[in-house]
Every structure is written in structure tokens, then in C-alpha cells.
Amino acid sequence: MRLSRRRPQFTGVALSIFGISAVAAWAISLATENRTATVALAGVTGVVTFAVALTAPFARARNRTSATGLALVGAAVVVGALGQTAADRTTVFAISGAILFCAAELADRSLARARGVERRRGVERWSLAWVLGVAIGSAGLSYAAIATRGLLGGGGPAALAVGTAGAMLLSFLAALVLRTRARSGV
């Protein structure tokens, strides 16, 4: 019999806050001089909002507030990376998105482990592979879609549509494969 303890919960929450703080710090470091204040304000507000959200007792309030925090940090990353080249921007956004997603999942899973709950052997645990798989897979997918768009004539609405459609198709294919795997209990 293993009872959920407070320590893993605390570690998970701390790691998730550290993750989005790192993203915010990266955004500040990328920002040009005249945008640093704006990026810093959005980033710090986002991190604080996210941290405060994790103390909310109810799932609904927690999810909404943490989403606000993530959106603010995302805004900081967007503004911070405006001065970068298209390739660099894409890299920054893909990595930041993956980290933000991992942080959100980590915090949610850590807080879902209520105290005094007996976790029996064999129960689905952290599934780190799933979270990282989605984060890295989606980042790669986005990067590939954007690169495809770049290859198809350096931009324009037609290339954007082709890239987006390609990304969506790949997403649905990946989801289909995952669904089959989940059904078969693998």
C-alpha cells in the first residue's frame, strides 16, 4: 500500500513553476532593449498568476487561472522573440510551447494526487513519455509545417493553408495511432 504524500506534489509544482520561469527568463533575454520592460512585466505576471493558480482548491478555478498565466508567459515569448529571424522564432516558440505544456501537465498531475489516497500497484502513473511525446511531437510537427510553408514559395496565404492542412492531417493521423494503442491497452 502506498499513500500519496505531500513531497511529490510539492516537487512537481516547484518544477512546473521553475519551467515557466525559465521560459519567461528566456523571453526577457531575447527581447530588444525597448521591449524588455513589456516582456518582463508580462512574463513575471504570468509566472505569478500561474503560481497563484496552483493554490486554488477547485479544479475549474485552477485551470482557468493557470491558463491565464500560461497565456501571459506565451505573450511575453511572442513579444520577446519579435526581433529574431523566422527560423529562430520558430525554434523559440516550439521549445517554449513544449516547456509550457510540460509545466501545465506536471502541475495538474501533481495537484491531482490528493493526500490520503492509496495508490495500488499497476495503476497508471506519471506517464512522462506521453507528456514529453506530445510536447516534442507537436513542436516538431509545427516546425515541420512552418518549414514546409517556407519551402512553398516563401509565404503567402496558399502556403499557410497547405502548411496548416498538412499539420492537421499529421495531428489526426498521430491521434488515430494513439487511440488504437490506447484501445489495445498497450
Binding site: F93, G97, A139, A145
Partner: peptide
């Protein structure tokens, strides 16, 4: 709005997780 498709990469993991979560039994 900003005309920068790279921003999609920022939100892609959330959308991807949403699609997988909805499609999985």
C-alpha cells in the same frame, strides 16, 4: 492577427493534447 505562423508552435502542444484526449476512448 500578427501574420506569423510560427506562433502556432507555441500553442500546438495544447491543441495536440486536446485532440488526443478527445479522440481517445
Amino acid at each position: 492577427v500578427l501574420g506569423d505562423p510560427a506562433i502556432v508552435a507555441l500553442a500546438a502542444p495544447f491543441g495536440f493534447a486536446l485532440v488526443i484526449g478527445i479522440l481517445t476512448r
